[in-house]
């Protein structure tokens, strides 16, 4: 099949790549660009592990073709913090033990970044609804909810 060339901005870096149209965005990020922070779980839109930001909004990267990102702006978990300087949301997860194995965490974080920007003081119900599309097999979600509350308070305190 005919390959196509795309230009896409990811975490502030511009990439130009020539790819097959059937290449999933999740596989593009991991295999073509080496951005393996985006995890791949179910690959049919159920688990949420591959959630990234597409033009600022969280989407499943396993349910898009990479060719569809031509001209768009993406953010993955690599665009948040670094091991030396975690993003405040990542710090909150660290603080509240909001992860165990960490497989779902990148997807959870990328879901929550725009959520907290729009809703700086969410209720527990709102938090649980926000992460309803992300499966976690370790935490039972309670520590994730705690982490979101800590992150929200950090934001409010610094404002």
């Amino acid at each position: 099949m005919k390959k196509q060339t795309i230009h896409v901005t990811i975490n502030g870096t511009e990439y130009t790549k020539t790819i097959e149209p059937r290449l999933l965005l999740s596989d593009f990020l991991r295999h073509e660009l080496g951005l393996t922070g985006t995890h791949v779980g179910c690959e049919h839109g159920v688990c949420g592990a591959c959630t990234i930001l597409f033009d600022g909004e969280p989407v499943r990267s396993c349910l898009m073709f990479a060719v569809q990102t031509d001209g768009h702006t993406l953010q993955t978990v690599e665009g948040l913090g670094t091991p030396d300087k975690l993003h405040p949301l990542q710090e909150a997860f660290h603080e509240a033990h909001g992860l165990q194995c960490g497989f779902c965490t990148p997807g959870v974080l990328m879901t929550l970044i725009p959520f907290l920007e729009k809703n700086s003081d969410p209720t527990e119900t709102e938090i649980r609804e926000a992460i309803s599309g992300n499966l976690c097999r370790c935490t039972g979600y309670q520590h994730i909810v705690d982490a979101v509350k800590i992150a929200a308070h950090k934001n409010t305190d610094t404002n």
Partner: peptide, 11 residues
């Protein structure tokens, strides 16, 4: 809000 999850509704 009953239609799937936020990530799905964005697409």
């Amino acid at each position: 809000p009953h239609v799937a999850h936020p990530q799905i509704r964005n697409r």
